[in-house]
Computed example of a mutant assay.
Amino acid sequence: MEQVTTKAWVVMGVSGCGKSEVGMRLAQALGAAFIEGDRFHPAENVAKMSAGIPLEDEDRRGWLGALRAEIVRAWEAGQAVVLSCSALKRAYRDVLRGKDGEVRFVHLHGDRSLIARRMAARHGHFMPLSLLDSQLRDLEPLQPDERGITLDVREPPERLVQQVLASARAARRPASG
Protein backbone atom coordinates (compact mmCIF):
# COMPACT_ATOMS: atom_id res chain seq x y z
CA MET A 1 0.00 0.00 0.00
CA GLU A 2 1.37 3.38 -1.09
CA GLN A 3 1.82 6.05 1.58
CA VAL A 4 0.85 9.55 0.48
CA THR A 5 -0.18 12.58 2.46
CA THR A 6 -3.09 13.69 0.29
CA LYS A 7 -6.35 13.08 2.10
CA ALA A 8 -8.61 13.13 -0.95
CA TRP A 9 -8.24 12.51 -4.65
CA VAL A 10 -10.92 13.31 -7.21
CA VAL A 11 -10.59 11.38 -10.46
CA MET A 12 -12.32 13.65 -12.96
CA GLY A 13 -13.21 13.99 -16.62
CA VAL A 14 -16.03 13.48 -19.07
CA SER A 15 -18.18 10.38 -19.10
CA GLY A 16 -16.42 7.33 -20.50
CA CYS A 17 -12.87 8.44 -19.68
CA GLY A 18 -12.33 5.71 -17.05
CA LYS A 19 -12.91 7.62 -13.79
CA SER A 20 -14.47 4.69 -11.95
CA GLU A 21 -11.88 2.11 -13.00
CA VAL A 22 -8.90 4.37 -12.26
CA GLY A 23 -10.51 5.64 -9.07
CA MET A 24 -11.11 2.12 -7.71
CA ARG A 25 -7.56 1.08 -8.54
CA LEU A 26 -6.10 4.23 -6.99
CA ALA A 27 -8.14 3.75 -3.82
CA GLN A 28 -6.92 0.17 -3.57
CA ALA A 29 -3.30 1.24 -4.06
CA LEU A 30 -3.67 3.87 -1.33
CA GLY A 31 -5.78 1.84 1.08
CA ALA A 32 -8.37 4.60 0.77
CA ALA A 33 -12.15 4.55 0.64
CA PHE A 34 -13.64 4.75 -2.85
CA ILE A 35 -16.71 6.86 -3.61
CA GLU A 36 -18.48 6.40 -6.95
CA GLY A 37 -19.86 9.86 -7.58
CA ASP A 38 -22.57 8.72 -10.00
CA ARG A 39 -24.29 6.82 -7.18
CA PHE A 40 -25.06 10.13 -5.46
CA HIS A 41 -27.02 11.68 -8.34
CA PRO A 42 -30.66 12.19 -7.39
CA ALA A 43 -33.20 10.30 -9.48
CA GLU A 44 -34.17 13.52 -11.26
CA ASN A 45 -30.61 13.99 -12.55
CA VAL A 46 -30.36 10.39 -13.72
CA ALA A 47 -33.72 10.67 -15.52
CA LYS A 48 -32.65 13.91 -17.19
CA MET A 49 -29.33 12.50 -18.39
CA SER A 50 -30.96 9.21 -19.48
CA ALA A 51 -33.28 11.30 -21.66
CA GLY A 52 -30.26 12.98 -23.28
CA ILE A 53 -30.74 16.29 -21.46
CA PRO A 54 -27.53 17.88 -20.12
CA LEU A 55 -27.49 18.86 -16.47
CA GLU A 56 -27.39 22.54 -15.57
CA ASP A 57 -25.29 23.99 -12.76
CA GLU A 58 -28.36 24.07 -10.52
CA ASP A 59 -28.97 20.35 -11.14
CA ARG A 60 -25.48 19.60 -9.86
CA ARG A 61 -25.54 21.82 -6.74
CA GLY A 62 -27.04 19.27 -4.33
CA TRP A 63 -25.06 16.41 -5.86
CA LEU A 64 -21.76 18.22 -5.41
CA GLY A 65 -22.70 19.15 -1.85
CA ALA A 66 -23.45 15.51 -1.09
CA LEU A 67 -20.08 14.45 -2.53
CA ARG A 68 -18.25 17.07 -0.46
CA ALA A 69 -20.08 15.78 2.62
CA GLU A 70 -18.88 12.23 1.81
CA ILE A 71 -15.28 13.47 1.55
CA VAL A 72 -15.57 15.19 4.94
CA ARG A 73 -17.26 12.11 6.46
CA ALA A 74 -14.33 9.93 5.36
CA TRP A 75 -11.83 12.40 6.80
CA GLU A 76 -13.70 12.54 10.10
CA ALA A 77 -13.43 8.75 10.21
CA GLY A 78 -9.67 9.10 9.72
CA GLN A 79 -9.73 7.70 6.19
CA ALA A 80 -8.27 8.95 2.94
CA VAL A 81 -10.72 8.91 0.06
CA VAL A 82 -10.79 8.66 -3.73
CA LEU A 83 -13.87 10.04 -5.50
CA SER A 84 -14.83 9.54 -9.13
CA CYS A 85 -16.69 12.62 -10.30
CA SER A 86 -16.86 14.50 -13.59
CA ALA A 87 -15.93 17.81 -11.85
CA LEU A 88 -16.05 19.45 -15.27
CA LYS A 89 -15.96 23.08 -14.15
CA ARG A 90 -13.67 24.96 -11.78
CA ALA A 91 -16.71 25.99 -9.74
CA TYR A 92 -17.62 22.32 -9.22
CA ARG A 93 -14.06 21.50 -8.15
CA ASP A 94 -14.16 24.43 -5.73
CA VAL A 95 -17.16 22.83 -3.99
CA LEU A 96 -15.38 19.48 -3.75
CA ARG A 97 -12.15 21.08 -2.58
CA GLY A 98 -13.76 23.22 0.11
CA LYS A 99 -11.54 25.60 2.01
CA ASP A 100 -9.00 23.08 3.29
CA GLY A 101 -7.03 22.48 0.10
CA GLU A 102 -6.45 18.80 0.91
CA VAL A 103 -8.02 17.63 -2.35
CA ARG A 104 -5.99 16.78 -5.45
CA PHE A 105 -7.45 16.17 -8.89
CA VAL A 106 -6.62 13.56 -11.50
CA HIS A 107 -8.00 14.77 -14.83
CA LEU A 108 -8.37 11.88 -17.25
CA HIS A 109 -8.15 13.52 -20.64
CA GLY A 110 -8.52 11.97 -24.06
CA ASP A 111 -9.52 12.25 -27.66
CA ARG A 112 -13.27 12.55 -28.30
CA SER A 113 -13.31 9.60 -30.71
CA LEU A 114 -11.65 7.25 -28.20
CA ILE A 115 -14.01 8.29 -25.40
CA ALA A 116 -17.02 7.97 -27.73
CA ARG A 117 -15.98 4.41 -28.61
CA ARG A 118 -15.68 3.56 -24.92
CA MET A 119 -19.10 5.03 -24.18
CA ALA A 120 -20.68 3.14 -27.08
CA ALA A 121 -19.18 -0.15 -25.84
CA ARG A 122 -20.52 0.04 -22.29
CA HIS A 123 -23.95 -1.23 -21.37
CA GLY A 124 -26.33 -0.31 -18.58
CA HIS A 125 -25.00 3.20 -17.91
CA PHE A 126 -27.47 6.09 -17.78
CA MET A 127 -25.21 8.54 -19.64
CA PRO A 128 -25.90 8.39 -23.38
CA LEU A 129 -23.24 9.09 -25.99
CA SER A 130 -25.33 12.05 -27.14
CA LEU A 131 -24.24 14.01 -24.04
CA LEU A 132 -20.49 13.67 -24.67
CA ASP A 133 -20.25 16.88 -26.72
CA SER A 134 -22.03 18.92 -24.03
CA GLN A 135 -19.60 17.56 -21.45
CA LEU A 136 -16.63 18.42 -23.63
CA ARG A 137 -18.02 21.96 -24.07
CA ASP A 138 -18.41 22.36 -20.29
CA LEU A 139 -15.02 20.91 -19.42
CA GLU A 140 -12.64 23.45 -17.90
CA PRO A 141 -9.13 21.99 -17.63
CA LEU A 142 -7.30 22.19 -14.32
CA GLN A 143 -5.94 25.66 -13.70
CA PRO A 144 -2.32 26.28 -12.66
CA ASP A 145 -3.41 27.04 -9.06
CA GLU A 146 -5.36 23.76 -8.75
CA ARG A 147 -3.49 20.83 -7.24
CA GLY A 148 -3.62 17.98 -9.68
CA ILE A 149 -2.37 16.15 -12.71
CA THR A 150 -3.74 15.61 -16.21
CA LEU A 151 -3.26 12.14 -17.68
CA ASP A 152 -3.83 10.61 -21.11
CA VAL A 153 -6.60 7.99 -21.15
CA ARG A 154 -4.82 6.04 -23.89
CA GLU A 155 -2.64 4.65 -21.07
CA PRO A 156 -3.94 1.51 -19.32
CA PRO A 157 -5.56 2.06 -15.90
CA GLU A 158 -2.66 0.49 -13.97
CA ARG A 159 -0.21 2.87 -15.68
CA LEU A 160 -2.44 5.85 -14.88
CA VAL A 161 -2.48 4.87 -11.21
CA GLN A 162 1.32 4.58 -11.22
CA GLN A 163 1.54 8.07 -12.73
CA VAL A 164 -0.70 9.46 -9.97
CA LEU A 165 1.41 7.79 -7.28
CA ALA A 166 4.64 9.10 -8.86
CA SER A 167 3.15 12.60 -8.94
CA ALA A 168 2.20 12.33 -5.26
CA ARG A 169 5.69 11.18 -4.31
CA ALA A 170 7.23 14.05 -6.29
CA ALA A 171 4.95 16.56 -4.57
CA ARG A 172 6.09 15.27 -1.15
CA ARG A 173 9.80 15.68 -1.86
CA PRO A 174 11.40 18.77 -0.34
CA ALA A 175 12.74 21.27 -2.83
CA SER A 176 16.47 21.01 -3.31
CA GLY A 177 18.55 24.08 -3.45
Rank of each mutant, 00 (worst) to 15 (best):
M1D: 07
M1V: 13
E2G: 04
T6R: 06
K7D: 02
W9P: 00
M12N: 00
G13E: 01
C17H: 02
K19I: 02
S20C: 03
S20M: 04
A27M: 07
A27H: 06
A29W: 00
A32G: 12
R39F: 03
H41G: 09
M49H: 10
A51N: 14
I53Q: 15
P54N: 06
L55R: 09
L55P: 08
E58R: 14
D59R: 11
D59I: 10
R60T: 09
G62V: 10
G65I: 05
R68L: 05
E70P: 03
I71V: 15
A74R: 14
W75A: 12
A80P: 06
V81H: 04
V82G: 00
C85W: 01
C85A: 12
L88G: 06
K89V: 03
A91L: 10
F105Y: 14
H107L: 14
G110W: 01
A116N: 02
M119Y: 05
R122Y: 07
H123S: 15
H125D: 11
F126D: 08
F126C: 10
F126Y: 15
M127S: 07
S130N: 05
S130G: 12
L131Q: 08
L131H: 06
D133Y: 01
D133H: 09
S134G: 12
P141R: 11
L142F: 04
D145W: 13
E146C: 09
R147G: 10
R147D: 07
G148K: 06
E158R: 10
R159A: 14
Q162F: 01
Q163D: 13
L165G: 06
P174Q: 14
P174G: 05
G177D: 13
